[in-house]
Design a protein around this nucleic acid. Sequence first.
RNA 1: GCGGAGGUGGCGAAAUUGGCAGACGCACUAGCUUGAGGUGCUAGCGCCGCAAGGCAUAGGGGUUCAAGUCCCCUCCUCCGCACCA
Length: 881
Amino acid sequence: MPETRTSEIGGKTVNIEDSSSAAEGNQPQRYNPAEIEPKWQAVWDADASLYAADAHDSGKPKYYCLEMLPYPSGALHIGHVRNYAIGDALARHMWMRGYNVLHPMGWDAFGLPAENAALKNGVPPREWTLSNIAAMRKQMQRLGYGYDWAAEVTTCLPDYYRWNQWFFLKMFEKGLAYRKKSKVNWCPECCTVLANEQVIGGRCWRHEDTVVELRDLTQWFLRITKYADELLDGLDKLEGWPEKVRTMQRNWIGRSEGALIDFAVDQGVGSREEGVEGKITVFTTRVDTIFGATSVQLAPEHAVSKAFALEDDKLRMEIEQLLAEQQKARETDALGAIEKHGVNTGRFAVNPFNGERVPIWVANYILGDYGTGAIMSVPAHDERDFEFAQKYGLPVRRVIAPADWTKHEEEHSAQAGAEDVVGKLPYLAEDEALLVDSGEWTGLGCVEAQEKMAAFAKAKGFGTPTVTYRLKDWGVSRQRYWGTPIPMVYCDRCSPEEPLPVAESELPILLPEQIDITQTNGSPLGRVAEFVNAKCPKCGGVARRETDTMDTFVDSSWYFYRYTDAKNSKAPFDSDKANYWFPIDQYIGGVEHAILHLIYSRFWTKVMRDLGLVKNDEPAERLFTQGMVIKDGAKMSKSKGNVVSPDDMIGRYGADATRMYALFAAPPDRDLEWQEEGVAGISRFLGKVYRLTTKYSGAARKAGGGSRVGEGSAKEQALLRRLHQTIAKITQDFDGRWHFNTSISSIMILVNEITANEAAMDAGEISPAAVAEVFRGLILLLAPFAPFFAAEMWEELGGEGVVFRTAWPEVNEELARDEEMEIPVQVNGKLVSVVKVPAGSDEAAVKAAALADPKVMARIEGKTVVKVIVVPGKLVNLVVK
RNA sequence: GCGGAGGUGGCGAAAUUGGCAGACGCACUAGCUUGAGGUGCUAGCGCCGCAAGGCAUAGGGGUUCAAGUCCCCUCCUCCGCACCA
């Protein structure tokens, strides 16, 4: 008897005539990714509109899905495959959910490897880079990632880097870009300076075996510290960012509240060192302990140390020794373990709070570039000061004590003497602790004393409350060729002191193409006369161009804004466009950029906001950091020989299986152990779906599907129920935890259930309409994870339009609901049986069913049931004696 | 040392709220099928035990009718920070 049904899933409503068997006339076929993937790739590559974002007035909600852009090394590694598989699944899912999705890709294309390749093989960096980009773009297309290539950004091309220069000029104008001489990190491998963020444990972020040296150089800096507080406070609002990243940024910014206190130098400092006044300013977070200060400690580089050194050759040599020790420790990242050394200068400083004269020492553990490079040493209440004082026999004077301390002291003096009290030092005060032996401040609580004493110092003119940061300004000069030229010139004639910005109309300052990269000393640009020789923007005379280039992290600090308007030649981007798309809804990348790229780009966004270019304070609403891909328990590396090649995997199992495995093998935020057998397993799974779909596609073509509740055979109901439960589960995963490993496993469960029902489908026990619905649903659920496969199967099923622009299946709640429940029954907390009850059974019914179960009866026979716990829908526990 | 994430079968892992530990996959075993090459299907697969049953989520204690999940202690791995005054 023919009946009419309507399709709810996968496209238009169609009326269809039922036929008796789902498998009618179809022969199952074999899955061959090598055939279907190139087929669809060709179709997709030919249609630029496929993954293009819609117009802003499309009426759809916007969704900006972004993955971190790669460095074009020449080939994607498996970590990229994973990163981009996560982003692509999300983008496709959001398309299917009806969003206007921006999903772009680009290239972080400046950087050292291009120069090294030029040195090694004689290929010009530009050529090397562009051919790598072409190869990697091809790989991405082969993997089936859906990017809007019209928005592609390549940072090494003048149409992009000219805006780096433009931003630099804007920052120079606003005093955010400046030049200064300072101690900077020099990587001997890169032959260039690095920013602090790019030094990891004393080593270069690119060369983990290369120890970074400290050099005194004049460099360009960006004033990121101006935004230190905002960068810090903003972290509290970034609830969509992993706590780990926020913590790392907080630590990196390292805000510390304290006070600056001036200690007058007894008998003056001496006049031979310029800029040295007759005082030493110390930074302390514990001004409340100042009555316990028994010395002042200076960094070896402190101006006063130097001044003293000038007057005393022996002292000078000792200080130089201390400095050398500190530098060596810094370079090998052993600063934390440095053996404390110091030298008594024989001079004295005056504690402004009590007028006491304390000796001035120079010590190797005092850093010249943190705080003021000088501290007051309070051995009784600081572990480091205590250690130093013990070593050199400096007095230890307790000035902070617990509220009940007097009593303790009496006990100690009576029993063991003062020695024992000292043995308990240093005492690190809690908030309730009080000041003792501190003149008029005695008896105050620590916290209160800190405030009052700093205010007092300010009122009396010998100090002030202050805040210091660990964060330093961002050093952006690089002594390399393959980067953005810094748009500044030096004119000896009209501006011998200050560099001059080039006119905005002169941009871009082009990187010369014909260049001989055969040497590695100094910036290669310095040897290119036609580049160096410039006209002075002020006097028109002959001037020298800046030959350093910008840190490549400048490029990646704002590239995602350019995606919104990649072809703009009048501005970095159009503000309206950026304001439509920003903030990024979801940013996905590796955690290794937690305090590099991710702090720079937050800074850049704030600068752009202050320039009036954008409205958002933060670049990305949500951040997701995926785990590493490891092999044989270790990070992949050439030296370990455990590198997995994506091309290999694609060649053997296809792009769909490779990507899908990357999502299946572990939750996306965890590290993933790559096992090739697992990829084979996914390939087998897709093969199974292929066989089933081709076998039953005839039914789908004819039938429109139609979910019926309470109709059809029990098997049909069960199968449809499973489909809708799977839809619910995967929808939930996308909205929540992104545990795509369990999403995919739930699809496998669905497929296993289809397999188990093959005979029923063949026999017509499950109607073709239901079969059609199940297969359409199945393929739509697979679409975000295996796009080539889904496209092919969608076509096979006679689906309308493009599969990943088809509406994401809706859950039919009624259909998804279980009719029966299996309720485990425990006796004294141990599982004894499982009883089946109708869904929604009340407590009494469940209890009755449990007590009627033969296994349960056997177990409780002759015993007293003391208590029955029934958790509706979950379990029954009988407590017996 | 401080902060964070982890520790569950032979392996990758599930268990979102305290409620059947090990879903799903890999590997392995057996049978059937296929057999021109990474095939398909069925069954088994935490450990001990013939079985009944017992024991199992790094280890130890606790709370609870019930603990991988909550609390306390200890151990291990990974990541970040680390004389920052």
